[in-house]
Nucleic acid binder design. Structure first.
Lengths: 232, 232
DNA sequence: GGAATAGTGTCTTTCAGACACTATCTG
DNA sequence: CAGATAGTGTCTGAAAGACACTATTCC
């Protein structure tokens, strides 16, 4: 960064926005579905991801919180951890001005999105959005990158690579292994073997055995399942 | 990106620079060593990575080529593929102006860096730079991220994860498995088992058997090694 | 008892890690 | 021949995939 000559501000600068692909899992404890927040826009009319400019001397993290508050209508603490996907830098991507987008993926539990402006659209197993024709700008690309990103964190890729039980806190603790598996299947879009899944997940979990903490998870019949919470 | 209201250019914009952690392997075919390009600077005096501002309506890729030409003194085609590491966005990281850095890692064969301005500093196995006191700005962080990045692409992480033989073209084809292993060891900073390494790498290679294409690789004595080139 | 769900045991396959051996060259 | 390097064969252990079985509940 920074040139060897003195004047730093003599050249035109790009506008910089933060666009957020906000992913969540609705009904995580009963019937989990991976969904993405999409909003309506007016100036270029259509559907798009929430986003906003990085204001003076603000960071990307601050801008993320700002977008969540002003555009999404959700107040969140600093526990939010957006993941940078790519920098979208085609100078013609917005014909009104020279604007780059720092595209981020953000995974939030659905309870953090109650009352959020926009629609939670189902992400289909092939990664496309149910019922969406095509988003504005290059936002379809951002969505594809965000879905790839979250799936790569939940898939059993390779073997040694550890997959933590519920890294994004979609489920409220404690939860059963059945519930956890259904969440993972919703995110990845593929079914998983019950026994193998449980075997691997148990390493990052500890059972609640205090006073028969069991629950008849998915329905009415059947043996009650052990409740777990994350270790550490 | 883009707000719902009309005026787009009314707010201050950040300067945006591209900083390059240029990694290479010197003497790839004889005695490979992982090195990083570091330059002297004057305005803040010290050592730093090459970098430069993104000029009007330019892309990151164009800026990368521009930095390579003007700051490094190397002319390269569009085959260059920088990898975005992080966006360094602390508003105080440069006290002269509001400047963000899109930090990129770039792996180049040493022959592409002949005559480059700056020093090729050895990257030690622990990831530090031999003989460097500390780079300007947050460039030490960028170096750490770049070394992690290239190592993650050469390590055998997990099992199924394929590691391609020479993704950055450090070696000129054809090469022996011995040469290839020494290059991987130089990048990762750890020794590897000869037999296991060969077994895995052979999947991405095909032997040259035309007319006894053998070479006495690492020295003078011993059985000559088979030469390989990458498949596809 | 029967249906439904939870949980365990274990066999097979795959592949990394490790070791030992054979093969082919130079001097 | 000895020394050096290239290359192969094979055993072991860890972990995933798959299947079958047992356990506990509600009806």
């Amino acid at each position: 960064m920074s040139p060897t000559s003195a004047p730093l501000d003599h050249y035109p600068r790009p506008g910089l926005t933060v666009d957020l692909a906000i992913l969540t899992v609705t009904d995580a404890d009963t019937d989990p579905v991976l969904r993405l927040l999409v909003q309506d826009r007016e100036s270029p009319a259509g559907r798009a991801l929430p986003g906003g400019f990085v204001r003076e001397r603000q960071t990307v993290a601050q801008t993320t919180l700002d977008v969540l508050r002003r555009k999404v209508g959700v107040e969140l603490g600093t526990s939010v951890t957006p993941r940078l996907l790519r920098l979208f830098d085609d100078p013609r991507r917005d014909d009104r001005s020279w604007v780059m987008s720092a595209a981020h993926a953000l995974a939030l539990p659905s309870r953090a999105l109650t009352g959020a402006k926009g629609d939670l659209v189902t992400v289909l197993p092939d990664g496309s959005l149910e019922g969406e024709e095509g988003l504005l700008f290059d936002h379809d690309e951002i969505v594809a990158a965000a879905v790839d990103d979250i799936r790569s964190r939940y898939e059993f890729r390779g073997r040694l690579v550890g997959v933590s039980p519920d890294p994004d806190g979609f489920l409220r603790e404690p939860f059963t292994l059945h519930q956890l598996r259904k969440v993972h299947e919703a995110v990845v879009g593929e079914e998983m073997h019950k026994d193998n899944f449980n075997r691997r997940m148990k390493e990052g979990l500890e059972p609640l055995v205090e006073g028969g903490a069991f629950v008849s998870s998915s329905g009415l019949r059947g043996r009650p399942a052990t409740l777990y919470r994350k270790t550490e």
